[in-house]
Amino acid sequence: MTSLRHSRGNAATAYAYLSPTLVLLAVLMALPIGMVIWYSLQNNVITNANPQLVGLQHYIDILADSQFHAALRNTTVFVLASVGAHLVLGLAFATLLNTPLLPNRIKTVFRTIFVLPWLLTVAIVAILWRLILNPSGVFNYVLTTVGVLDAPKEWLGDPALALFAVTLMNIWYGYPFFMVSLLAGLQGISADLYEAASVDGAGPIRRFASITVPQLRPIIISMTLLDLIWTSHQFALIWMSTGGGPLDRTELLSTYTYKLAFSQYMFSTASASAVFFLLISALLAYAYVRHQKARD
């Protein structure tokens, strides 16, 4: 009896301590998500005092909308290209910063330069790249001067180049996070493994493929999953550089949803789009959590 009372007392104390966090989670997470899902099932929420329940109609409308298809297509290209490039660049720069072939002073300089994009806010990055990619900007100047281009290009204004241009901006902005994480992983790999492999006659490529990559795999998988989630949420960079244009060439799910809500005031349809977005993120988050559990 006493033990049962102790047990209940323990539980009450634990829940009492947890309750501030639980309240915050409920107010800041569960409630907004619940409201968005509820909005997506009604018609003309917010702008109409008496919205009606329309079930899944907004989801059906969205899935039939060609703009949504374009946004989904662009988001897929943008996310996969960004994450792939983040991984390759992050690994390449981390390897460079970890090499014993360079003196520490040089590595410090490189480390400072490589991490620079991470220190800037997204608004600064957007403005900076708008200037760089301007038809009269540095990018065109360099490429025309060295003879790569005959004439300046409209990197952000040309429908054929705009998605490439914003992806390039996002790659530049996002690789340092990969680089720093992978560098930490590289520094944790025992030098004995490389020595033993060298003694066995393994060359640099074999050592990289058989030691570096397997040792970094847990970090690479975690980082890739996280980056897939973060990059799919990218909004500010696109909005401040192209606004989703020209035409719909850089329209992502995030800008599509924003326009539905704040340009057309279709908050219910925007909510349905957001829920769709949430499902994709939830799947990625689930994969991430499973991977973390497996690691533990």
């Binding site: 038809p135 409209e154 952000l156 204004g157 040309d158 705009a162 192209t242 606004g243």
Partner: peptide
């Protein structure tokens, strides 16, 4: 002027 399709008023 080139770049008009993504240009903002301040640009």
């Amino acid at each position: 002027a080139p770049g008009g399709l993504t240009m903002a008023e301040q640009d």
